[in-house]
Design a protein around this nucleic acid. Structure first.
Lengths: 202, 202
DNA sequence: CTTTGAGAGTACCGATCTGTACTGTCGGGT
DNA sequence: ACCCGACAGTACAGATCGGTACTCTCAAAG
C-alpha cells in the first residue's frame, strides 16, 4: 500500500527539516515512522532517493499552497503583497528553520538531482511572482519578480538565523516600495473572503 | 608555532565550504593541510571547535574586507551601492557556493555557539549598512539596512542555487530603488581611487 | 654532541551509518 | 483450512568517522 510510503515520506520530511539530512539516519526515520527498513528500501532504493522524493513533494506542496492562496486576492498591487502576507505567517511559526529546499541543497552539495529540484523550485517561485505582478499591472514583471524572490529567500534565511519574525515584515515593506506602493501597511489578504487555507505547508 | 594552526584553519575553511561540514572528515583536513591529527587536536580540542574557529575568522575577514573597501567610496547614495558592487564581484566567482556562515549554520543546526556566530555576523552586516546609509543621508537607516540585508542574503542563496551571476545585479537594482535612486546603473566604486583590494575574502 | 620539543605519519578503538538478510506476524483471498 | 503477500523487528556486514596513542624525524638551544 502507498500509505506506508506516505508515512515514511512525512517522517523523513519532518526529521530532515528539523535536524538536517546528514544528522538523521534511515534507522531513525524507519523507527519513527513505525516502518521497517525493508519497507523503506522497497519504496526508495536509497537514502538519496528518499531525499529527492521528499524534496520534490515538498516543493510541489509549497507552490500549490501559494498558488491557491494568492490567486484569489483582490486585484491590484495588493495581489503581489498577498504572497508576502502568507510568508510572514509562515516564517513566524515557532520552529521555522528556513526554506527546506535551500537547507537540503546545502546539506547535499554533491547531488546534482537535488540541485536541479532547487533550481526548478526557484523558477516556479519567479513564475508565480511574475503572474501576480502582471495581474497587478506592475512594470517589468520579470525583473521585479527576480528582486522580490531575493527578498523572500533573504527573509527566510535571516528569520531562521535571527529567530525573530521581523524579517518577513521588512521584506513586505521593501516589496511594497519595489512594486510602487510607498508604504502600504494594510494586509491584502484581510478581505472578506479570507476563507482559504492559510496553514503553512510544513 | 601558529603557522601550522593557520594552515589547518585555511584548509578546513576551503574543504568545509566546498563540500559541507558533515561531508569532510578531520582525516581529510589533516592530510590536505600536511598536518598530523595530533597537531589538529592540539590547536582545536574537537571538530566542533575547529568549525567555530574557522567560522569566526571567516566572519571577521569578510567584515574587515567590506569595511575597508566601502568606507572610502565617494559620499552620497553611491556609498551604499558600493557594498553591492563588491558583492556582485564576489558572487560572480566561478565556484561561489553561498555565504559560508549561512551554510555552516545550516550544516550544524545543533551547535548554539555557531548560531550565535551567525547572529553576530548578520548584526555586523546591518551595522555596516546603517553606517553607509547614514553617511549617504538616506532616511530611516535601521529599517533600510534590514531590507538591504535581505537582498544581500537572498542574492547569495539564489546565486548559489541558480549558478548564474544575475542575482547580484538584481539585488543592486532593487537596493538603488530602496535608497531613493531610480535606476542608477553606474558603478559607485569605479572612481579614480580604485586602488583597494577587491579580491573577495574567500 | 646532547637534549628537547614540535610535528608528520600510522595504527587503532568505539561508535555510527547505509544497506541487506532473515525471522516472525497478521490479514485477506481461495 | 490454507496460503500468500505486506510488513515490523532484529541481526548483521562493510565502511567511515571522531578521537587517542604511539613512533619516528628534524631542527634549534644549551
Amino acid at each position: 500500500m502507498t500509505e506506508t510510503r506516505a508515512r515514511i515520506l512525512d517522517t523523513a520530511m519532518a526529521l530532515f527539516y528539523a535536524h538536517g539530512v546528514h544528522a538523521v539516519g534511515v534507522n531513525a526515520i524507519a523507527a519513527r515512522a513505525a516502518a521497517s527498513k525493508l519497507s523503506l528500501y522497497k519504496y526508495f532504493q536509497s537514502k538519496e532517493h528518499l531525499v529527492r522524493a521528499m524534496l520534490t513533494e515538498h516543493s510541489d506542496r509549497i507552490h500549490s499552497w501559494l498558488e491557491r492562496n494568492t490567486a484569489q486576492a483582490p486585484p491590484g498591487p495588493g495581489r503581489v503583497l498577498a504572497v508576502f502576507d502568507l510568508l510572514i505567517d509562515w516564517f513566524a511559526q515557532p520552529n521555522y528553520r528556513g526554506c527546506a529546499v535551500v537547507n537540503t541543497v546545502t546539506d547535499t552539495r554533491a547531488d546534482p538531482a537535488i540541485a536541479a529540484i532547487a533550481r526548478t523550485h526557484l523558477a516556479r517561485y519567479r513564475g508565480l511572482l511574475e503572474d501576480r505582478l502582471r495581474e497587478a499591472h506592475v512594470a517589468d514583471p520579470p525583473v521585479v519578480a527576480r528582486q522580490l524572490l531575493l527578498l523572500i529567500e533573504g527573509a527566510s534565511v535571516v528569520t531562521s538565523i535571527d529567530g525573530t519574525p521581523t524579517a518577513g515584515n521588512d521584506a513586505r515593506a521593501a516589496a511594497a516600495r519595489l512594486v510602487g506602493l510607498a508604504g502600504s501597511v494594510t494586509s491584502a489578504t484581510a478581505g472578506p473572503d479570507r476563507t482559504a487555507d492559510h496553514r503553512a505547508p510544513a
